[in-house]
Amino acid sequence: MTDLDLDPDAELAPETLARHLRAGGQVSVLDVRDRPEFDAWHVDGGGVDARHVPHVQFIAAGARGDATDPLPADLAEPIVAVCGRGEASADTADALREAGVDAVNLAGGMDEWAVVYLAEPLVDADDVTVTQFQRPSSGCLAYLIVAGEGDDREACVIDPLRAFTGRYAAATEEAGATLRYALDTHVHADHVSGIRSLRDATDAAAVVPSGATDRGLAFDPTLLADGETLQIGDVTVEAIHAPGHTSELCCYRLRRERGPDVVFTGDALFLGSVGRPDLEEGDDGARSLAGRAYDTLHERLLPLPDDTLVAPGHFADLADARGDTYAAPLRALWDLDVLSLDRESFVDRVSASLPPRPANYERIVAVNLGQESLTDEEAFEAELGPNNCAVE
């Protein structure tokens, strides 16, 4: 079933698992946490066969002399055992191996899976570099743009996560640049934004779309309106108002003279879908925002040059990568089913094809607006789980 090479004498590093799944590999996962924890969030994806059997069942089976008894008969080997911190799953994997099963423990469990953060070059050119940061546990994507030369080398981060503030600051320093801006494409509902923590850590300006003021913005960021620009070294980032997922959402277009532009679409356009329209105003406002999403796509984004590189804010499945990153030329997205619909059909589909809303989304929105506060630990816990920001 899987080509994942497991070392029975060592634990499997979560980053190794993430890269394996991103490359299209498959894996059998045995999750031994309690059922509510598994149902809320687990290692998932098209390449994952995830099964739940609580640790207590393996303990009881071991006492009876057959540690393999609770193991699903159709779960293919090798098997990766998973729990919250990697302790109960290590015990399970050890018992299974002693019984002759090809099994290994996921080091650190879901706690360590949650902090895997991959960084891959998206653009590596003379005029500018763009690094894509990928969080496999939630599908969140962020970007670091670096441009300029010598002492004038500057950077900005788009859609940073508060949990990884140090990663962006370190990557900027490693690039020999000064972090000028930390930008959000919109008021996020699935993760706690890092624009204010980066402002505090680096003196970068925290930037949000100007429309966020209408949603109750309760802190004092730099506001960016449609058509306004920021200068990063010798390149320009332009705001494109793109309402639909939320009313204030802005995409950011990196304009280049020596290569295709890059458009950071946030939750307006993904590689396989579009953003859900119900997180700001609930079901009552979903159809109105879905209509605005249609207009955004067909009037503002799809008319961009066909070689424009679309860099979205999320991915749905690790295996959706195009190589090592989640981005594609605009022309590669023209055949998406949802983009071929007329306006009425689009509104019907986009306002109805909705997964469960992200966990704690109302509280996360309030935090990102500056209306509430959370400690680092509380913020990390609040955003665990899938982002669920796309239309299915």
Rank of each mutant, 00 (worst) to 15 (best):
L289C: 04
L271F: 01
G65D: 02
E377P: 10
E173W: 01
D159L: 10
V192E: 12
R162D: 12
F380K: 13
D7K: 07
S288T: 15
L369R: 10
A76N: 11
A99P: 07
Y117E: 12
Y252A: 03
E362S: 13
A67K: 04
S247Q: 09
I364Y: 03
G216K: 09
E149P: 05
T2S: 15
V157F: 00
R135P: 08
R322G: 08
T68I: 04
R19Y: 04
S137K: 03
V350D: 01
D376G: 13
V208D: 01
G86C: 09
D151Q: 14
D159V: 12
D44T: 14
R357A: 15
P8Q: 10
S197E: 13
D190W: 10
D348M: 07
T129F: 00
G285Y: 03
D111W: 06
E299Y: 09
F133N: 07
D317W: 03
V365C: 08
T178F: 02
V27K: 05
H55E: 09
Q371G: 08
D94M: 13
E383F: 03
D39M: 09
Q231H: 06
D102W: 02
A182W: 08
A205I: 02
S89R: 06
D94E: 14
L279N: 08
R135F: 05
R258G: 09
V192G: 11
E149W: 07
A321W: 06
V48T: 10
E281I: 00
S345W: 00
D7M: 01
G109M: 01
E154A: 12
M110N: 05
S373A: 14
Y326P: 01
D152R: 14
L6F: 10
A90Q: 14
A218G: 09
T236P: 02
L369H: 12
E372V: 10
G65L: 00
P209A: 11
A332R: 12
E383K: 02
G25F: 03
L161P: 06
A23C: 06
D69A: 15
V27M: 05
L30S: 00
T296C: 08
D151S: 15
D320N: 09
G45W: 00
S89D: 08
A23H: 08
E154L: 01
D307L: 07
L374N: 09
G109A: 01
S351H: 05
E98P: 03
H20C: 05
V48C: 01
P358L: 00
A182N: 11
R331M: 05
A218V: 10
A103E: 03
G148S: 04
R357Q: 13
F315T: 11
I240D: 00
V101G: 02
V130L: 04
G65I: 02
V53H: 06
V82Y: 00
T185K: 05
T222E: 10
D335C: 08
G45F: 06
T2E: 10
N388H: 15
I240V: 15
Y117N: 15
V146D: 01
Q57V: 00
V29K: 03
D306V: 13
C389L: 15
V235C: 01
D306Q: 14
D214G: 15
A212C: 14
G272E: 14
G84W: 11
V32S: 04
A114Q: 13
